[in-house]
């Protein structure tokens, strides 16, 4: 259903710097509002949760509703205190979990 997520953030930052992170995941985001050609409602299937942790601490979350566009895009800020790893998690209505990680170096 979803393809490999894409995440964009700097490779390095100074301690305490606020960086911008951009994320995109390919997903239909079937709203549950559409009908197929026989007039049957196409069941809802969306990514309903997006979570970002840094060194296992939650830094940003989004509770997502069907009104979010297909291929959901999120842009947000994070204050980076130290070197570490960001973990990005998307949860699908069908229970699938899509994950990716990115490291950042603090000089």
């Amino acid at each position: 259903m979803a393809s490999k997520p894409r995440v964009k953030l700097p490779k390095s930052a100074s301690a305490g710097e606020i960086i911008t992170i951009k994320t995109l995941i390919s997903h239909e985001m079937e709203s549950g509002q559409r009908k197929d050609k026989n007039g049957e409602v196409i069941p809802r299937q969306i990514i309903n949760k997006f979570t970002v942790t840094f060194n296992d601490k939650t830094v940003f979350e989004a509770d997502i509703e069907p009104a979010i566009s297909s291929n959901p895009y999120f842009e947000f800020a994070v204050k980076v205190p130290e070197s570490g790893t960001f973990k990005f998690t998307w949860v699908d209505d069908d229970g699938s979990v899509y994950e990716t990680e990115e490291a950042i170096e603090v000089a």
Binding site: I18, S31, Q33, F54, K57, T58, V59, F60, E61, A62, D63, I64, E65, P66, A67, I68, S69, P72, Y73, F74, E75, F76, A77, V78, K79, P81
Partner: peptide, 24 residues
């Protein structure tokens, strides 16, 4: 059809309360 779009949750590590997305 439903008013809900998204809810963003921030933390001290957000540094700045700012977020952007795309909606229907």
């Amino acid at each position: 059809p439903n008013p809900d779009v998204v809810t963003f949750k921030f933390s001290e590590l957000s540094g700045e309360a700012i977020a952007e997305t795309r909606m229907r």
